[in-house]
């Protein structure tokens, strides 16, 4: 709704901060996410002894690192109003390729990792090109990507392959000791690094800002003369790179490659992005929100483990319910904004 007519100069929006002014249309879902996380964490800590130990929190980061890394890339795609369903099977495909290259072909792990990262970026760019040049619906193109990755992964090896290479053993044990708090594992560090780079990209580069612009209004972005096509392709390439990196994290974390790994991970990642406050229609959201979104699902999963009597499927139901709530919240805000 428009403001009242008596607004010669915008007195209501003049400089100077009002209380809670930071709560606007784009920050509100993010604030809600943080609140949900804090409430869940506090409730779980009060309810389960030992939950508040710092190591539990650090493990949240490490255990969900590969979901999180993929989710950061996905955040950019969703910010443009697109979607990438291929991230889950990319993790499976990447991990089995690394494992096979290292164990069966005796390729040096570093080269194997670089190859997989290059592959992910290439496939992502390819999907982006189809979307950019032929206006194909992103969900179908990336669904094809999902099948392609899963198919290639299974063609490489139907069986899970363990990675014995000493470098992997060292990497999976690596971590930064944090004194009494425990230690921050390498996968958690990679996750946090990716989040940091993601925040930087989204906040401080033209690529990031154009990403937001496309999701906000592609038409306007075109009229403003922004590089819409290039950026659209770029986000899918970025997402491809991130899911490949996630497969590396997975391979290191489990010391194995498995073509069936990451089944349904795309849904977890999408859920984390949306619960993290990013609108599925694009344009608003924060990479930091995705971090919190991943942590929310991590807390739920950990709490269910602590409970012992609850089973793992409650995670999925909780994820679906949270997703429903956040989407309805977004719709309600959208309607009010109109």
């Amino acid at each position: 709704m428009r403001r009242p007519p008596s607004q010669p100069s915008p007195s209501a929006s003049r400089k100077g901060k009002e209380p809670l002014r930071f709560l606007n249309r784009s920050t509100f879902p993010f604030a809600a996410t943080v609140l949900v996380f804090v409430l869940l964490y506090v409730a779980a800590s009060l309810h389960y002894t030992g939950f508040s130990r710092p190591q539990v929190f650090l493990n949240l980061l490490a255990d969900n690192a590969f979901v999180g890394v993929a989710a950061v890339g996905l955040t950019f795609v969703i910010l443009t109003g697109g979607i990438d369903l291929s991230v889950g099977s990319a993790v499976g495909c990447g991990s089995i390729i690394i494992a096979t290259l290292v164990e069966k072909q005796h390729v040096h792990p570093v080269i194997a990792i670089l190859l997989v990262l290059a592959m992910g970026t290439t496939v992502g760019s390819g999907m982006g090109a189809l979307i950019r040049y032929f206006d194909l619906p992103p969900f179908l193109v990336t669904l094809a990507g999902l099948f392609l990755y899963r198919g290639i992964g299974l063609l490489v090896s139907m069986e899970s392959v363990s990675i014995m290479h000493p470098l992997f053993a060292r990497l999976s044990m690596a971590g930064v000791p944090l004194g009494d708090a425990g230690s921050l594992q390498l996968s958690a560090i990679v996750f946090l690094l990716v989040v940091a780079v993601g925040i930087y990209l989204s906040r401080h580069t033209t690529f990031g800002r154009v990403t937001y612009a496309i999701g906000g209004s592609e038409q306007s972005a075109l009229l403003m003369g922004l590089p819409v096509g290039r950026t659209k392709m770029g986000v899918y390439a970025l997402s491809g790179f991130c899911s490949a990196l996630a497969s590396v994290v997975y391979a290191v974390y489990t010391s194995a490659g498995n073509a069936n790994a990451g089944t349904g991970l795309e849904l977890d990642a999408i859920a984390a992005v949306v619960v993290g406050g990013t609108l599925l229609s694009g344009g608003t959201g924060y990479v930091a929100g995705t971090l919190v979104g991943v942590l929310i699902f991590g807390v739920i999963q950990t709490a269910i483990t602590f409970q012992g009597t609850l089973s793992s499927w409650w995670t999925k139901i909780a994820a679906g319910t949270l997703l429903l709530l956040f989407i309805l919240l977004q719709r309600a805000m959208h309607r009010r904004a109109r």
Binding site: I83, W314, T315, G320, L324
Partner: peptide, 20 residues
């Protein structure tokens, strides 16, 4: 709600319900 998004919810939670 956009159809992709709306049906995504059940795509996520549905398997949980089935497992339940």
């Amino acid at each position: 709600v956009q159809p992709i998004v709306a049906t995504l919810i059940l795509m996520v939670a549905g398997r949980g319900v089935a497992q339940l």
